[in-house]
């Protein structure tokens, strides 16, 4: 069994600050890291090898040269090889162009039985890239996977997290799994793993080595365009009063609002 994991380098979101004048993200001095949700995909790939055996786990990323760091993190957790797709021609890719590029990068590495991705990237936040890569490669689409129950005889059984519960779904291999946070707790890297990752050679693959024409790559190959960014301004003209000036008066106000909204005390229990 061959397994691939898609990992993305993202800005460490807890640090994200916005330039007030331009409304764009301040990238200077912001740490980049492996997308936190992708840690769960990497962890699951390593666990799948431990449970069902896998001859190889390949981690793949598309991004600028410094995205090699995200791949090293994946190697430190147990992936065997990292491949970076990097070329100025990839710049400005939307989710479709990104998915095409990643799918082509995977095709170059041979056939995979399972491809894993995170549920969503903390910067793009679309959750579209993983499923789209699987679709391009003709794999069974399994999104929001919260557990892998079994893999064998050309089939996989997973649990999917959906509204109100979980589904148990069976599908033929090869399959594309986008995994949710609850699937596992990512391991801490060992020192040995980190040393190995630091020494590993990470091949960089450019547009010329992929089977896609230039007009299908990057901004040129992206059907969507971001035309504007703005600040969300939600302002209500509400009254603010202090409980110190009289708790009872404050409670009267709350009860008044509840009543005016038709919320009965002792409302029905749902």
């Amino acid at each position: 069994m061959r397994v691939a994991v898609l990992v993305k380098q993202v800005p460490a979101t807890e640090d994200v600050r916005i330039d007030d004048a331009t409304g764009t993200m301040i990238r200077e001095g912001v740490e980049a890291e492996l997308n936190p949700l992708d840690l769960h995909a990497v962890e699951e790939a390593v666990r799948l090898r431990e449970r069902f055996g896998a001859s190889e786990i390949v981690a793949l990323s598309m991004g600028p040269p410094r995205a090699a760091k995200a791949l090293r993190s994946a190697l430190a957790m147990g992936c065997d090889r990292g491949v970076l797709l990097s070329d100025a021609k990839f710049a400005g890719s939307d989710t479709l162009a990104t998915a095409r590029t990643l799918a082509s990068g995977l095709r170059r590495e041979g056939a995979f039985d399972l491809v894993l991705s995170g549920e969503r990237a903390t910067d793009g936040e679309t959750g579209q890239v993983g499923p789209a890569v699987g679709r391009i490669l003709g794999m069974s689409p399994l999104a929001f996977v919260s557990a892998v129950e079994s893999v064998g005889d050309g089939r996989i059984v997973v649990r999917r997290a959906v509204e109100g519960g979980h589904e148990r779904v069976e599908a033929p291999l090869p399959a594309m799994l986008s995994v949710v946070k609850e699937i596992n707790v990512p391991r801490l890297c060992t020192l040995g793993g980190r040393m190995r990752a630091r020494r590993a050679e990470i091949p960089v693959v450019g547009a010329a080595e992929l089977d896609i024409s230039d007009d299908r790559l990057g901004l040129a190959g992206s059907p969507t365009r971001v035309v504007r960014v703005s600040y969300p301004h939600v302002v209500r003209k509400g009254r603010v009063l202090s409980a110190k000036d009289g708790l009872d008066a404050a409670l009267d106000e709350i009860l008044g609002v509840l009543e005016s909204r038709g919320i009965a005390r002792g409302g029905e229990r749902a």
Binding site: V234, G238, R239, V240, S242, L247, A250, L251, I254, V257
Partner: peptide, 16 residues
């Protein structure tokens, strides 16, 4: 949060 509130109570939630 008070900027999006219709009614704001400045006070300790553990009391209110």
């Amino acid at each position: 949060i008070f900027r999006v509130a219709d009614l704001g109570i400045v006070g300790d939630a553990l009391e209110v």
